[in-house]
Nucleic acid binder design. Structure first.
Lengths: 136, 136
DNA sequence: TACTATTTGTTCGTATGTATA
DNA sequence: GTATACATACGAACAAATAGT
């Protein structure tokens, strides 16, 4: 599979699909670095801008993480800690605002879970490390 | 408050912070269109690229939505439907992959909630229209 | 320590396409 | 049909962080 210039699907989205499928297929191993942006742009014959947009899309899905000076890596899903939803409690999921995300030291593309207790208090948990449970 | 070119914080992130605060403060009303990208770039004295990156950041937070040919709008939070977490059930939150997001007709910056039942079945709900509850 | 090479981040410029009003 | 506005795509230059020499 490769990039189709005549497709109505944007190049960067096609590229994101290719890389995503590569991750699902195990072609790119979790925790391992992807090829550099320049390498990807040469391999697929697209501009660096398209590569960066594709990687940004995958970051927003929580599939890869990028740090300055290092190649992007396939994100390793962390272990989940069980949190009980209390009787009479409610929970919602939302994306954190950027300053909040940085404050909580969370990766891009990771939602937060807000647990609202009957007494009015609220707990916020990182969505990638949390599993909401209700005992049987 | 305005843009500080000498700050270590990138221009687009500063701009995103300004617009976000403007939304929180009610300066930009929910459902109303923001100024156009060109207008914003002139008002704040930054490049259009910085404006687009700022808006992309706010979209990824589910704070604004953008459609081609129209100015970006402050997103209106939809009503939430209550979904009961069943006894013995588990729930996680994650970002949908782009094709899945398009398939489900969801806005950018909106997570999904996966509810896993004890019998092994799974339900997927849009995070902006769902509230997970446990009866008292 | 210092230096170099690699890599990602930011910013600007330019052009073209596509959808809306 | 025209004007406005957002989307895509390429190139280029420089900054900043990393890793290794």
């Amino acid at each position: 599979m490769s990039i189709d210039r005549r497709s109505h699907t944007p190049v960067y989205r096609q590229l994101a699909n290719l890389i995503r499928e590569g991750i699902y297929a195990g072609q790119y191993v979790a925790g391992a670095p992807l090829p550099s942006e320049v390498t990807l742009s040469q391999e697929y014959g697209v501009g660096r801008d398209a590569v960066r947009q594709a990687l940004a899309l995958l970051r927003s899905e929580g599939l890869v993480s990028t740090e300055r000076g290092e190649r992007s890596r396939v994100r390793v899903p962390p272990e989940r800690v069980s949190v009980e939803l209390p009787p009479g409690g409610r929970a919602v999921a939302r994306m954190p605002a950027d300053p909040e995300r940085v404050e909580r030291d969370m990766d891009e593309g990771v939602p937060v879970i807000e647990v609202h207790h009957p007494d009015g208090t609220t707990e916020v948990h990182p969505g990638d490390k949390t599993e909401l449970i209700r005992p049987a």
